[in-house]
Protein backbone atom coordinates (compact mmCIF):
# COMPACT_ATOMS: atom_id res chain seq x y z
CA UNK A 1 0.00 0.00 0.00
CA UNK A 2 1.23 3.47 -0.90
CA UNK A 3 0.54 5.96 1.87
CA UNK A 4 0.93 9.74 1.76
CA UNK A 5 1.09 11.53 5.12
CA UNK A 6 0.66 15.31 5.07
CA UNK A 7 2.37 17.07 7.92
CA UNK A 8 2.41 20.62 9.23
CA UNK A 9 5.37 22.43 10.76
CA UNK A 10 3.83 24.30 13.70
CA UNK A 11 4.78 26.04 16.96
CA UNK A 12 5.09 23.74 19.96
CA UNK A 13 1.85 23.57 21.97
CA UNK A 14 3.38 25.59 24.83
CA UNK A 15 4.44 28.50 22.57
CA UNK A 16 3.55 32.02 23.44
CA UNK A 17 1.72 33.49 20.48
CA UNK A 18 2.73 37.01 19.40
CA UNK A 19 2.83 39.04 16.19
CA UNK A 20 5.15 41.61 14.62
CA UNK A 21 5.09 44.07 11.71
CA UNK A 22 1.91 45.82 12.81
CA UNK A 23 0.30 42.51 13.70
CA UNK A 24 0.67 41.11 10.21
CA UNK A 25 3.39 38.49 10.86
CA UNK A 26 3.73 35.66 13.33
CA UNK A 27 6.58 36.34 15.76
CA UNK A 28 8.96 33.37 15.54
CA UNK A 29 11.23 34.59 18.34
CA UNK A 30 12.00 31.71 20.68
CA UNK A 31 9.43 29.42 19.09
CA UNK A 32 10.19 25.70 18.77
CA UNK A 33 8.63 23.95 15.80
CA UNK A 34 7.15 20.47 15.84
CA UNK A 35 5.22 18.07 13.62
CA UNK A 36 1.54 18.96 14.23
CA UNK A 37 0.31 16.71 17.08
CA UNK A 38 -2.52 15.26 15.00
CA UNK A 39 -0.22 14.77 12.00
CA UNK A 40 2.09 12.87 14.34
CA UNK A 41 -0.76 10.44 15.10
CA UNK A 42 -1.38 10.01 11.36
CA UNK A 43 2.30 9.28 10.77
CA UNK A 44 2.44 6.82 13.66
CA UNK A 45 -0.52 4.85 12.29
CA UNK A 46 1.04 4.89 8.80
CA UNK A 47 4.23 3.35 10.22
CA UNK A 48 2.18 0.61 11.93
CA UNK A 49 0.21 -0.14 8.76
CA UNK A 50 3.43 -0.37 6.77
CA UNK A 51 4.97 -2.71 9.35
CA UNK A 52 1.90 -4.96 9.12
CA UNK A 53 1.31 -5.03 5.38
CA UNK A 54 4.37 -3.58 3.62
CA UNK A 55 4.26 -0.70 1.16
CA UNK A 56 5.72 2.76 1.40
CA UNK A 57 5.19 6.05 3.19
CA UNK A 58 5.80 9.47 1.66
CA UNK A 59 5.52 12.58 3.81
CA UNK A 60 4.53 15.90 2.36
CA UNK A 61 4.70 19.46 3.62
CA UNK A 62 3.74 22.65 1.87
CA UNK A 63 6.21 25.12 3.28
CA UNK A 64 9.42 27.06 2.85
CA UNK A 65 12.93 25.66 3.36
CA UNK A 66 12.80 26.15 7.16
CA UNK A 67 10.37 23.20 7.44
CA UNK A 68 12.93 20.64 6.25
CA UNK A 69 14.10 19.63 9.76
CA UNK A 70 10.46 18.73 10.51
CA UNK A 71 10.31 16.58 7.36
CA UNK A 72 13.62 14.93 8.36
CA UNK A 73 12.08 14.11 11.72
CA UNK A 74 9.18 12.40 9.93
CA UNK A 75 11.72 10.41 7.92
CA UNK A 76 13.43 9.41 11.18
CA UNK A 77 10.08 8.22 12.55
CA UNK A 78 9.66 5.90 9.58
CA UNK A 79 8.64 7.60 6.33
CA UNK A 80 10.56 6.44 3.26
CA UNK A 81 10.75 9.69 1.35
CA UNK A 82 9.74 13.32 1.76
CA UNK A 83 8.31 15.93 -0.57
CA UNK A 84 8.30 19.64 0.12
CA UNK A 85 6.17 21.95 -2.01
CA UNK A 86 8.20 25.10 -1.94
CA UNK A 87 5.65 27.75 -0.95
CA UNK A 88 4.34 29.56 2.08
CA UNK A 89 1.10 27.77 3.09
CA UNK A 90 -1.11 30.83 2.62
CA UNK A 91 -4.50 29.23 3.16
CA UNK A 92 -6.31 25.89 3.19
CA UNK A 93 -7.42 26.16 -0.43
CA UNK A 94 -3.92 26.89 -1.69
CA UNK A 95 -2.41 24.09 0.42
CA UNK A 96 -5.12 21.66 -0.73
CA UNK A 97 -4.40 22.39 -4.39
CA UNK A 98 -0.71 21.62 -3.79
CA UNK A 99 -1.43 18.38 -1.95
CA UNK A 100 -3.98 17.28 -4.56
CA UNK A 101 -1.41 17.71 -7.33
CA UNK A 102 1.25 15.66 -5.54
CA UNK A 103 -1.35 13.03 -4.65
CA UNK A 104 -2.59 12.77 -8.22
CA UNK A 105 0.91 12.21 -9.55
CA UNK A 106 1.83 9.71 -6.82
CA UNK A 107 -1.28 7.51 -7.05
CA UNK A 108 -1.57 6.84 -3.30
CA UNK A 109 -4.04 4.34 -1.82
CA UNK A 110 -4.36 6.23 1.43
CA UNK A 111 -3.80 9.88 2.29
CA UNK A 112 -3.47 10.49 6.01
CA UNK A 113 -3.58 13.92 7.63
CA UNK A 114 -4.17 15.33 11.06
CA UNK A 115 -7.67 16.25 12.13
CA UNK A 116 -6.55 19.87 12.15
CA UNK A 117 -3.43 21.97 12.09
CA UNK A 118 -2.72 23.71 15.39
CA UNK A 119 -1.86 27.04 13.82
CA UNK A 120 -4.87 27.73 11.64
CA UNK A 121 -7.09 25.01 13.12
CA UNK A 122 -9.26 24.95 10.04
CA UNK A 123 -9.85 21.21 9.83
CA UNK A 124 -10.45 21.97 6.14
CA UNK A 125 -7.59 20.54 4.14
CA UNK A 126 -8.66 16.86 4.22
CA UNK A 127 -12.17 17.69 3.01
CA UNK A 128 -10.86 19.98 0.28
CA UNK A 129 -8.27 17.46 -0.94
CA UNK A 130 -10.90 14.70 -0.89
CA UNK A 131 -13.25 16.81 -2.98
CA UNK A 132 -10.51 17.89 -5.41
CA UNK A 133 -9.56 14.23 -5.96
CA UNK A 134 -13.13 12.86 -5.94
CA UNK A 135 -12.26 10.70 -2.92
CA UNK A 136 -14.14 10.22 0.34
CA UNK A 137 -12.73 12.24 3.23
CA UNK A 138 -13.36 11.43 6.88
CA UNK A 139 -12.33 13.17 10.08
CA UNK A 140 -11.71 12.91 12.99
CA UNK A 141 -10.66 9.27 12.70
CA UNK A 142 -9.92 7.49 16.00
CA UNK A 143 -9.17 3.93 14.85
CA UNK A 144 -8.20 2.68 11.42
CA UNK A 145 -7.82 -0.79 9.92
CA UNK A 146 -7.38 -1.69 6.27
CA UNK A 147 -9.07 -4.74 4.77
CA UNK A 148 -8.42 -5.11 1.04
CA UNK A 149 -9.55 -1.87 -0.53
CA UNK A 150 -11.74 -0.83 2.38
CA UNK A 151 -10.82 1.26 5.40
CA UNK A 152 -12.69 0.27 8.55
CA UNK A 153 -12.63 3.18 10.92
CA UNK A 154 -14.29 4.95 13.79
CA UNK A 155 -15.07 8.63 13.58
CA UNK A 156 -15.74 10.78 16.62
CA UNK A 157 -19.06 12.61 16.63
CA UNK A 158 -20.70 14.77 19.29
CA UNK A 159 -21.46 12.53 22.24
CA UNK A 160 -20.07 9.33 20.72
CA UNK A 161 -18.68 7.68 17.60
CA UNK A 162 -19.58 6.22 14.24
CA UNK A 163 -18.23 2.99 12.81
CA UNK A 164 -17.60 3.34 9.11
CA UNK A 165 -16.49 1.52 5.98
CA UNK A 166 -14.80 3.69 3.40
CA UNK A 167 -13.66 2.66 -0.08
CA UNK A 168 -10.02 3.41 -0.86
CA UNK A 169 -8.43 5.58 -2.01
CA UNK A 170 -9.53 7.98 0.71
CA UNK A 171 -8.33 10.98 2.70
CA UNK A 172 -8.48 10.64 6.49
CA UNK A 173 -7.93 13.26 9.21
CA UNK A 174 -6.55 11.44 12.26
CA UNK A 175 -6.58 11.98 16.02
CA UNK A 176 -5.78 9.91 19.09
CA UNK A 177 -6.08 7.11 20.03
CA UNK A 178 -5.37 5.95 16.46
CA UNK A 179 -1.75 5.16 17.43
CA UNK A 180 0.86 6.16 19.99
CA UNK A 181 3.25 8.90 18.95
CA UNK A 182 6.56 7.39 17.82
CA UNK A 183 9.86 8.77 19.02
CA UNK A 184 12.65 8.40 16.45
CA UNK A 185 15.44 6.03 17.47
CA UNK A 186 19.15 6.42 16.66
CA UNK A 187 18.97 4.21 13.57
CA UNK A 188 15.99 6.19 12.32
CA UNK A 189 17.80 9.47 12.82
CA UNK A 190 20.91 8.21 10.99
CA UNK A 191 18.97 6.82 8.04
CA UNK A 192 16.81 9.95 7.77
CA UNK A 193 19.87 11.92 6.67
CA UNK A 194 20.16 9.97 3.45
CA UNK A 195 16.50 9.33 2.62
CA UNK A 196 15.29 11.29 -0.43
CA UNK A 197 13.73 14.72 0.15
CA UNK A 198 12.49 16.28 -3.06
CA UNK A 199 11.46 19.87 -3.51
CA UNK A 200 8.75 20.69 -6.03
CA UNK A 201 7.49 24.08 -7.15
CA UNK A 202 3.88 25.11 -6.41
CA UNK A 203 0.99 25.35 -8.86
CA UNK A 204 -0.10 28.84 -9.84
CA UNK A 205 -3.33 28.75 -7.82
CA UNK A 206 -4.24 31.85 -5.85
CA UNK A 207 -5.38 31.48 -2.25
CA UNK A 208 -9.10 31.94 -1.56
CA UNK A 209 -8.49 33.93 1.62
CA UNK A 210 -5.87 36.38 2.87
CA UNK A 211 -5.16 37.54 6.39
CA UNK A 212 -5.42 41.33 6.84
CA UNK A 213 -3.98 41.24 10.35
CA UNK A 214 -3.84 39.27 13.58
CA UNK A 215 -5.24 40.07 17.01
CA UNK A 216 -4.69 38.74 20.49
CA UNK A 217 -7.69 38.13 22.72
CA UNK A 218 -8.41 40.94 25.18
CA UNK A 219 -6.68 40.44 28.53
CA UNK A 220 -8.83 38.99 31.31
CA UNK A 221 -9.74 41.62 33.84
CA UNK A 222 -8.49 39.50 36.73
CA UNK A 223 -10.04 36.93 38.98
CA UNK A 224 -12.55 37.60 41.75
CA UNK A 225 -11.90 35.18 44.60
CA UNK A 226 -14.82 33.78 46.55
CA UNK A 227 -14.52 32.13 49.97
CA UNK A 228 -15.00 28.36 49.86
CA UNK A 229 -17.50 28.64 52.70
CA UNK A 230 -19.62 31.14 50.80
CA UNK A 231 -21.09 29.47 47.74
CA UNK A 232 -24.19 31.69 47.97
CA UNK A 233 -21.91 34.57 47.04
CA UNK A 234 -20.61 32.70 43.96
CA UNK A 235 -24.16 31.92 42.87
CA UNK A 236 -25.06 35.57 43.38
CA UNK A 237 -22.13 36.74 41.23
CA UNK A 238 -22.92 34.24 38.46
CA UNK A 239 -26.56 35.23 38.51
CA UNK A 240 -26.44 38.98 38.97
CA UNK A 241 -23.00 40.10 37.81
CA UNK A 242 -22.11 37.67 35.01
CA UNK A 243 -25.78 36.85 34.30
CA UNK A 244 -24.91 33.36 33.10
CA UNK A 245 -27.12 31.15 35.27
Amino acid sequence: MKILVCITHVPDTTSKIAFTDNSTKFDQTGVQYIIGPYDDYALARAVELKEATGGSISVLNVGEAETEPTLRKALAIGADDAIRVNAFPTDAFFVSKQIAKVAEEGGYDLILMGRESIDFNGGQVHGMVGELLGMPSMSPVMTLDIEGNTAKLTREIEGGKEFMEVKLPAVLGCQEPIAEWKIPNMRGIMSARTKPLSVVEPTGDAPATTVDNFELPPAKKGVTMVDAENMDELVNLLKNEAKVI
Binding site: I118, A208, D212, L216
Partner: peptide, 18 residues
Amino acid sequence: VAKTSIYTGKAFANTKLN
Protein backbone atom coordinates in the same frame (compact mmCIF):
# COMPACT_ATOMS: atom_id res chain seq x y z
CA VAL B 1 -13.59 40.06 6.55
CA ALA B 2 -14.20 37.22 9.00
CA LYS B 3 -12.67 37.10 12.45
CA THR B 4 -11.38 33.56 12.75
CA SER B 5 -10.02 31.95 15.87
CA ILE B 6 -6.48 30.55 15.32
CA TYR B 7 -3.61 29.03 17.32
CA THR B 8 -6.22 27.05 19.24
CA GLY B 9 -7.96 30.10 20.64
CA LYS B 10 -4.76 31.96 21.47
CA ALA B 11 -5.26 34.53 18.69
CA PHE B 12 -7.56 35.75 15.93
CA ALA B 13 -6.97 36.40 12.24
CA ASN B 14 -8.99 38.99 10.39
CA THR B 15 -9.40 36.96 7.25
CA LYS B 16 -10.50 38.45 3.96
CA LEU B 17 -12.60 36.13 1.81
CA ASN B 18 -11.79 36.69 -1.86
